[in-house]
């Protein structure tokens, strides 16, 4: 018979983890489907379980600043619905939460659960990737921090140890000039992603200083290619400099004052378009979706790239 544990505190939870292998249940909205059996039979958990959804100590979202780094800390048991309506939740995460599942599921589901489930179609994951999320794992011997891209190893697989639980997720706290989130599901609500895209970026004086993009549901894990992001930012800067090297009317050049957005429309925009198209093409190599019962690879790939293009154009 499967035993169920209900820790009285967060410390108690960690203590239980050292003693028995357990499946951790926060909201349970993924697990209760995965393990379901015939009606009125208990789900087929093949070991003990530990309920953590009630642990108030790790239910929070708070902004912290450490060594000039502004970060947001999201506790493991705060529900998606609580996050959705919290003032400290970043806009792009709010957009993702708003299209996840349904109100009923959001009332008990957690971000930690979404991460632990490690579904290729997890709606919050692309956002967490571009916010440089760090997963904080805790055991009774201490804590360790794992960047999300190292924590999620594949569909349904994470780097969690059997004596650990997720304590919190730490994300960047930035004011992005542009945030863009789009989930394409089979319908407008309560749907599994066919393709999911998250993008954010900032500009200073018309120059792109930060650009981050991530794709969901187009590979076994979220696709984020930092090298291409950097290359894109650099290429934009180079293009801008080359534009700004055109002498002004009095023959003087003032590169630092050139504002890309207010430049000479026609040649700038053609050059910009070309650059954007090339960027999209480069990303195409990394977007490798599959055919399944929800959609096909051709559509998923094209839409992923369309969304990227749309985002870059808006940036």
């Amino acid at each position: 018979m499967v035993l169920s544990y209900r820790p009285v505190s967060y410390a108690d939870a960690l203590s239980i983890l050292t003693k028995v292998p357990v499946t951790i249940i926060a909201g349970g909205t993924d697990l209760m489907v995965k393990k379901r059996s015939w009606s009125n039979l208990a789900p087929t958990f093949d070991g003990d379980v530990m309920f953590v959804g009630h642990l108030e100590e790790i239910s929070y979202i708070k902004k912290l600043e450490k060594s000039n780094q502004k970060r947001i800390h999201i506790g493991a048991t705060i529900t998606l619905e609580e996050l959705l309506y919290h003032k400290d939740t970043p806009e792009i995460l709010r957009q993702a939460l708003g299209v996840m599942a349904s109100p009923a599921i959001r009332h008990t589901a957690t971000l930690a659960g979404n991460i632990g489930n490690a579904s290729p179609a997890g709606d919050s994951l692309p956002v967490l990737y571009i916010l440089n999320a760090i997963v904080v794992l805790a055991s009774s011997s201490g804590e360790r921090q794992v960047p999300i891209e190292d924590f999620i190893l594949g569909p349904g697989k994470t780097a969690i140890n059997s004596d650990e639980m997720i304590k919190e997720i730490i994300i960047d706290d930035c004011n992005f000039g542009t945030v863009y989130y789009k989930k394409v599901g089979g319908r407008k609500a309560d749907a599994i992603s066919k393709v999911c895209f998250a993008g954010c970026g900032s500009k200073v004086d018309g120059q792109i200083t930060d650009m981050r993009v991530a794709f969901g549901a187009v590979g076994p894990t979220v696709v984020r290619v930092r090298s291409l992001e950097e290359a894109c930012v650099n290429a934009h800067r180079a293009l801008q400099l080359s534009v700004s090297e055109k002498p002004s009317e009095d023959g003087l050049v003032e590169p630092s004052k050139v504002n890309f957005d207010q430049g000479d429309e026609s040649s700038n925009s053609i050059a910009r378009e070309q650059l954007d198209s090339e960027t999209v093409k480069k990303f195409a190599d990394y977007v490798r979706p599959i055919d399944d019962q929800r959609s096909n690879a051709i559509y998923r790939k094209q839409i992923a790239l369309n969304l990227l293009k749309d985002f870059i154009t808006k940036l």
Partner: peptide
């Protein structure tokens, strides 16, 4: 007083 799906809610919760 919040809607949940009882088919996904374990008794222990």
């Amino acid at each position: 007083y919040k809607i949940v799906n009882s088919c996904l809610t374990p008794l222990g919760s």
